[in-house]
Design a protein around this nucleic acid. Sequence first.
DNA 1: CAAGGAATATGACATTATGTCAATAATATA
DNA 2: TATATTATTGACATAATGTCATATTCCTTG
Lengths: 204, 204
Amino acid sequence: MMEKEVMDKRHLRSIKTRQKLLEAAKEVFLEEGFQKATISQMIKKAEVGYGTAYVHFEGKEDILIVLMEDVMGKFYEIAEISFYPKSKEEAENIIHKQAYSFLKMAETERRMLQIFEQAIGISSAVSEKWKSIREKFIQRISKDISYAQENGLARKELNHELVARGWFFTNEMYLWDIVRNERQESVEEIAKTITAVYTRGLYL
Amino acid sequence: MMEKEVMDKRHLRSIKTRQKLLEAAKEVFLEEGFQKATISQMIKKAEVGYGTAYVHFEGKEDILIVLMEDVMGKFYEIAEISFYPKSKEEAENIIHKQAYSFLKMAETERRMLQIFEQAIGISSAVSEKWKSIREKFIQRISKDISYAQENGLARKELNHELVARGWFFTNEMYLWDIVRNERQESVEEIAKTITAVYTRGLYL
DNA sequence: CAAGGAATATGACATTATGTCAATAATATA
DNA sequence: TATATTATTGACATAATGTCATATTCCTTG
């Protein structure tokens, strides 16, 4: 039972138009960057009328958000890695793995993330989207720190939310650094180094 | 000997025009934000002709960069605090003080930094300017870590530049968080917490 | 199966910005 | 005073956005 079988011919056409627009938009974004990309370029490439773009999307920002949705999904997956360490060493392993996966995304999805970074500065809709990913991570890390504190693994005197935020911030900035191709060092080395400082700073 | 005495009447007029534009621009930026601020609003407020703005500046971005220059200066001062600790405790004190001063800037200069943050995303000129501040700090921190490592205060096995970057990133992100008014906690508490994790993670 | 109705698509248009430039005004200099 | 230099000006060309009345395409119902 493919969903498409059920559809109207015109609904189908609509979906196809939308799809053509998304594909064209992706190309245009990658070629021009977020700022310089224009609706006109997209509709030309998609071979549809100008107004059509506004039928399907609210504007450039909206299109980018849709294009980013699967990348978003991958971030959420990483945020959900389970965390029940029995020792400092085990904690370090899990944390390292998580940081590594997170930073690896920068390499895997570099091109789209570059566009996304540009858009974060410009579009508040995109920026909100990213903020929600960030808060998801911070909440999660915060919970993990609490768990470690309750189980006598981590320093209890530290405000877990502040620590979580600080730790995530380091990760996030390295993510963008890598996205911009500004780091020589391997993702592995970066992950190892920042995890080492963090775990030794927090754990007993 | 005031510089002004030396000037032509017309050079003086030019300086005044420029000044009027800068003051008007600041108001407009603060009222409208970077995106929505327009040259037209500024020249109207400054009571000069449209083209005049382009005689004195290359555009919105350029005006903002000039407006930010004294804030920049304050950042550079903080980056230059001297660092020759004799013990882990002394190091922690200096580092805490530096982090505190840095984050305090977020409160003191909040309004202009808000505009600056918006502009970083949009204008590559502004973004470059910020990047140079960031690199200045990272270089400096990097040197400080090396010093501590050579003097047997810090863990030698860690790549000092990677650690420096990570530490600065935490600070920077908290800076923007505070600028956005998104933190309840006091600057003092934030500085204390992140410094505690960092110094324990890095120092012996 | 034909006619009317609903969903889609279209591009001309009004709007709003930007940056340029030839003309004009103000001031300096010879 | 006449001429050169510098500063200012606003009209214009350009470019992008988002809207909307109209056209097209397909579905439904009598």
